[in-house]
């Protein structure tokens, strides 16, 4: 962001300002349309479920919201920052400091011991190895994986990898968590643990955007946004 640009509003100090705002988002994968004119606002202290059939654009929406994918049209405001106005390094910094991302199947860095893999958001932000590993150790303990800190992802079960991904998303204490089916491969106890941790972000005044096929999980959220054919089919207030 250039120095002459107005600084973004402190969205955590202004509860009325959304942590995430998508306006008129459209995106296509090649010639296949994925999202069409999608609007979404997520305020502080809110959990939003994004539901819809396979191929409805849920994961694309999450990638656009995280700044991993630049939309073909529309604006994305993340914690008061217009992502289009930020360069790659600034978007990356926003992701590692303020946004936790949990993708389907965990997506851990292969061949990196869990302790370092979970510490990555801190390490990439310039934190020293020692303190970053301490934070990672605490995060792993939070998801019950203390014993696996030296294991590489290939040595974990699918559920353990998913829990490690949740730990990695929360290690930098983000204000917004974007999670794509975060508990799909977890047993009931693991799922409850992961969801408690994710809802902890909401309790601290942050926000959670949860992509899910699970109606029970969606019902636990404050809002449900249902996508169909790349557009918003309905946006229900569940409170």
């Amino acid at each position: 962001m250039s120095p002459d640009q107005p600084s973004p509003p402190d969205v955590l100090a202004e509860p009325t300002h959304p942590l995430l705002r998508l306006a008129g988002i459209s995106h296509a994968h090649g010639r296949t349309p994925a999202l069409h004119d999608v609007d979404l606002e997520v305020g502080a202290g809110t959990a939003v479920a994004v539901t819809g059939a396979s191929g409805s654009g849920k994961s694309t929406l999450l990638h656009v919201a995280a700044g991993l994918l630049a939309p073909d049209a529309g604006t994305v405001e993340l914690l008061g920052h217009d992502l289009a106005a930020l360069d790659d390094a600034e978007r990356a910094q926003l992701r590692r400091r303020d946004v936790g991302i949990v993708l389907q199947y965990g997506q851990l860095v292969p061949d990196l011991p869990l302790l370092d893999g979970v510490a990555l958001p801190l390490l990439l932000d310039g934190a020293a190895l020692g303190p970053a590993r301490e934070a990672s150790r605490a995060a792993l303990a939070g998801v019950g994986l203390s014993a696996a800190e030296d294991a590489v992802p290939a040595e974990l079960s699918g559920g353990q990898a998913q829990l490690a991904a949740v730990a990695r998303a929360l290690v930098a204490q983000p204000h917004l968590v974007l999670a794509d089916e975060p508990v799909a491969s977890l047993d009931p106890a693991g799922a409850a643990l992961a969801l408690d941790l994710l809802w902890g972000v909401v309790a601290r005044g942050g926000a959670l955007v949860l992509v899910t096929h699970d109606n029970v999980l969606a019902a636990r959220c404050d809002r449900e946004v249902r996508l169909a054919h790349g557009g918003v089919q309905h946006d229900l207030d569940l409170r």
């Binding site: 991993l68 990356a92 958001p121």
Partner: peptide, 11 residues
Amino acid sequence: TLAVVGASQRD
């Protein structure tokens, strides 16, 4: 995966 957790293109 590294980009997801905040690695920039420079990193």
